[in-house]
Computed example of a mutant assay.
Amino acid sequence: MRRAARGFTLVELVITVAILGLLASIAMPLAETMVRRSKEQELKAALTTLRDAIDAYRDAVEAGRVARSAGDAGYPASLQVLVDGVADRSAGAGGKLYFLRRVPRDPFADPALPAVQTWGLRSSDSPPDAPQPGKDVFDVRSLSEGQALDGTPYRSW
């Protein structure tokens, strides 16, 4: 009497590989959607952070804590000003106001670019339907050509 050999048959292995391939093909789009959703959340948070800092700068100008020149709209000249700080007129000599620790980066932008260059800028004298950079930073937007999961372009956020 011969003992039956133990192991898997070729048919069992093929079926197992086919099932694993099917599961992987279902999981990949889900994983890509999760990564994209995470980047969208990062973009929303970065835009909120930058816009809050720009508004805080404007509030400081209105409160008289930051010097304002004639004809100045009261917005920062660049995003870097929010990190570098400005002289605080109410604190005396040497006091500075800081509005950001660092400029957040657009998660959809080229990682080789510095964070400051990943944003599209809109000056205070630029119309909302055709934002252009100018003498100050009134608002920021993503430069990404992509569309969000809800169908809106990232540039319009």
Results as ranks from 00 to 15, higher is better:
residue 141 R to V: 05
residue 47 L to S: 10
residue 110 D to F: 07
residue 108 F to N: 01
residue 49 T to S: 06
residue 72 D to I: 10
residue 104 P to I: 04
residue 126 S to M: 13
residue 155 R to S: 14
residue 67 A to S: 06
residue 9 T to E: 02
residue 52 D to P: 05
residue 80 Q to S: 15
residue 81 V to K: 15
residue 79 L to T: 01
residue 52 D to A: 15
residue 89 R to P: 02
residue 95 G to Q: 10
residue 90 S to T: 09
residue 86 V to L: 12
residue 83 V to D: 08
residue 156 S to G: 12
residue 152 T to G: 14
residue 142 S to W: 01
residue 40 E to C: 00
residue 14 V to K: 06
residue 108 F to V: 02
residue 140 V to R: 02
residue 92 G to I: 10
residue 37 R to I: 06
residue 76 P to D: 12
residue 7 G to P: 06
residue 70 A to Y: 08
residue 154 Y to C: 00
residue 34 M to N: 09
residue 63 A to T: 07
residue 105 R to V: 00
residue 5 A to Q: 00
residue 141 R to P: 04
residue 80 Q to D: 15
residue 132 Q to R: 05
residue 47 L to C: 12
residue 53 A to K: 01
residue 81 V to M: 14
residue 42 E to K: 15
residue 78 S to W: 13
residue 20 L to D: 08
residue 147 Q to W: 01
residue 145 E to S: 15
residue 153 P to A: 06
residue 105 R to F: 00
residue 34 M to W: 14
residue 109 A to W: 00
residue 156 S to A: 15
residue 58 R to T: 10
residue 151 G to W: 04
residue 59 D to V: 06
residue 103 V to C: 12
residue 84 D to F: 12
residue 14 V to C: 10
residue 140 V to A: 10
residue 128 P to E: 12
residue 40 E to H: 02
residue 40 E to Y: 03
residue 60 A to I: 03
residue 69 S to Q: 13
residue 59 D to W: 12
residue 13 L to D: 06
residue 58 R to W: 03
residue 56 A to R: 05
residue 157 W to Y: 15
residue 87 A to V: 08
residue 122 R to G: 01
residue 82 L to W: 02
residue 56 A to Q: 09
residue 84 D to C: 12
residue 84 D to L: 15
residue 131 P to N: 05
residue 109 A to R: 01
residue 84 D to V: 10
residue 137 V to F: 03
residue 6 R to I: 02
residue 69 S to Y: 07
residue 125 D to P: 03
residue 47 L to M: 15
residue 106 D to C: 09
residue 97 L to K: 07
residue 55 D to M: 11
residue 135 K to E: 14
residue 60 A to T: 00
residue 105 R to I: 00
residue 17 V to E: 07
residue 143 L to E: 10
residue 82 L to G: 03
residue 90 S to L: 08
residue 32 E to C: 13
residue 68 R to D: 04
residue 56 A to N: 05
residue 63 A to Q: 14
residue 132 Q to E: 13
residue 96 K to N: 11
residue 48 T to A: 05
residue 57 Y to P: 09
residue 120 G to D: 03
residue 122 R to V: 07
residue 150 D to A: 11
residue 53 A to N: 02
residue 134 G to F: 01
residue 75 Y to A: 00
residue 11 V to K: 11
residue 133 P to A: 11
residue 7 G to N: 06
residue 115 A to G: 07
residue 17 V to R: 09
residue 82 L to Y: 01
residue 120 G to W: 01
residue 29 P to R: 04
residue 21 G to V: 12
residue 23 L to R: 04
residue 112 A to Y: 14
residue 33 T to D: 11
residue 83 V to F: 14
residue 11 V to C: 07
residue 42 E to Y: 09
residue 78 S to C: 13
residue 73 A to L: 14
residue 118 T to P: 01
residue 106 D to I: 05
residue 83 V to Q: 14
residue 113 L to A: 14
residue 151 G to Y: 07
residue 111 P to M: 13
residue 10 L to E: 10
residue 54 I to S: 00
residue 55 D to P: 05
residue 64 G to E: 09
residue 84 D to I: 10
residue 123 S to R: 02
residue 19 I to H: 07
residue 31 A to I: 11
residue 137 V to R: 01
residue 27 A to T: 09
residue 125 D to N: 07
residue 18 A to W: 04
residue 75 Y to C: 04
residue 88 D to F: 09
residue 144 S to N: 13
residue 63 A to F: 05
residue 61 V to R: 10
residue 53 A to D: 03
residue 12 E to R: 08
residue 12 E to L: 07
residue 144 S to H: 11
residue 143 L to T: 13
residue 65 R to D: 13
residue 106 D to K: 05
residue 38 S to P: 08
residue 135 K to F: 03
residue 65 R to P: 02
